[in-house]
Computed example of a mutant assay.
Amino acid sequence: MGKWADNHFGRFREWWRERRSWEISEEGRANICKMRALVEARDGSLAENDAGKKLLVAARTELDSAGKLLDFEEHHRKPLGSHITSAQIHLNAARLLWVRSFLSTPQDIKPYLPSLLAVVKEHLSSADERRKSVENVRRHNSLGNADVVMITEAVEAAQAVSLREELRAGSFVRIVWVVAGFLLVLALSIGALSAAWPKAVPLCFNPPKSMEARAAEAETPEAASPVMYEVVCPTGTDPSPPSPDLDVNFEMTAKGRDYFVVEVAGLVAAGLASASALRKIRGTSTSYGVPVALAALKLPAGALTAVGGLLLMRGGFVPGLSALDSSAQIIAWAIIFGYSQELFTKFVDRRGQAVLEEVRGPGDPPPGARRRGDSPGGSSPESRAAALT
């Protein structure tokens, strides 16, 4: 029994470890290994009394901190995207310390200029003076201490921009999840309250009686209804309401499951809308699940828009659609209103896509997207968001 439990719980722990950002964690470990190799190679080329050795010692400390953040057995916390970003901060610090170690021998940094310039171009616009300084340094035949300082400043600025992009993506995901959770609680609360008090705000309509119902009442006058309308609710219908009071007839026909059925219909429609929206999602190389959060937001939103839309119809807000004829029509309109949550969430989708575009990654940019430095004036987040729409 103990061996079986260890085996299965071990698999569960492995799944828990890999469930979110395991691949990106491995990429981070590989980058730490490469950076450590560069630090060791640089340390071996320096004299014992060189001031750069102290910088390399600090770089090793930063690499050790980054490695611990990526080793989830060290802190026993969930492998969230924040650990990847924190590890990247320490890796960036190690890279800056490594670059500063070239102050004693500026010429030795020249083979690394293309990769450093690529990092700068990735995050700084072509109008940025720090980027221009690095581009000018690359054209020099000989390098000095001032050139190394300019390279360091440019790389540090690029890393700061990259960090802000990652933090903005993480903040956006957290906000979307909080809003989705709030909407889910709101939808569940509405379903629970309507089940406890089904007669408070019934989702019922009073269409005119059909010709068949009128003919049947004409044949049996003693059983005729005092009103000339039917009562139609999501899960029940009364073709012959017994009371002349509309509210009393609604209360007698309404059921506690009406709101729940309508919310489920809206939830299903929102799920279909989320599946349809997948065709526009390219995915992300970041450790933050922006597309998943956007899809999750649509589900409770669909349940709420289904209820809200039917309440507007019941109040006569939509001309000509104030009296639905059957329960099937009510459910059909609930599906339509549930799918219509796209009218509200599409703005969040656009912002989410813009956030993903702002986060630079190792891959190519999406089709039609331009990086910040591709045009003389760069491209602002607003222009990228407009291009996506």
Rank of each mutant, 00 (worst) to 15 (best):
D6S: 09
N7T: 14
N7I: 13
F9D: 11
W15L: 08
R17Y: 09
E18F: 10
E23T: 12
I24S: 13
S25V: 07
R29V: 00
A30V: 05
C33V: 09
L38Q: 15
V57C: 08
E62A: 00
L63E: 10
D64Q: 01
A66P: 11
L69P: 08
L70V: 07
D71M: 04
D71Q: 11
F72Q: 09
E73W: 11
S82H: 05
I84A: 05
Q88C: 06
H90Q: 12
L91Q: 14
L91W: 12
N92P: 07
A94E: 08
V99M: 07
S101P: 04
F102L: 02
I109E: 03
K110L: 02
P111V: 01
P111R: 03
L113T: 04
S115Q: 08
A118Q: 10
E122H: 10
S125L: 02
D128V: 01
R130F: 01
K132V: 02
V134R: 06
V134S: 07
V134T: 08
E135Y: 02
E135D: 15
N136W: 05
R138I: 11
A146P: 05
I151N: 00
Q159S: 00
A160F: 00
L163C: 06
R164Q: 10
A169H: 03
G170M: 04
G170L: 00
F172L: 01
V176G: 07
G181N: 05
F182L: 15
L184C: 02
V185A: 10
L186P: 01
L186C: 05
I190V: 10
I190F: 01
A195L: 15
A195V: 09
A195K: 14
A196S: 15
A196C: 15
A196G: 12
K199H: 13
K199I: 11
A200H: 09
V201D: 11
P202C: 09
T220Y: 08
A224E: 01
S225A: 04
V231E: 15
V232Q: 11
G236F: 01
P241F: 11
L246S: 12
D247F: 14
T253A: 12
D258R: 10
F260D: 11
V261E: 04
V264P: 08
V264E: 06
V268F: 15
G271W: 13
L272Y: 06
A275H: 14
A275Q: 14
A277G: 13
Y288D: 03
A293Y: 00
A295V: 07
A295L: 13
A296T: 05
L297N: 06
G302S: 04
L310Y: 06
L311I: 06
D325P: 03
S326R: 02
S327E: 09
S327Y: 09
Q329P: 05
I335P: 03
Q341C: 15
L343S: 07
T345R: 06
V348Y: 01
L356E: 12
E358G: 14
P362T: 06
D364C: 00
D364A: 02
P366E: 06
P367N: 07
G378H: 09
E382F: 13
S383N: 02
A385I: 04
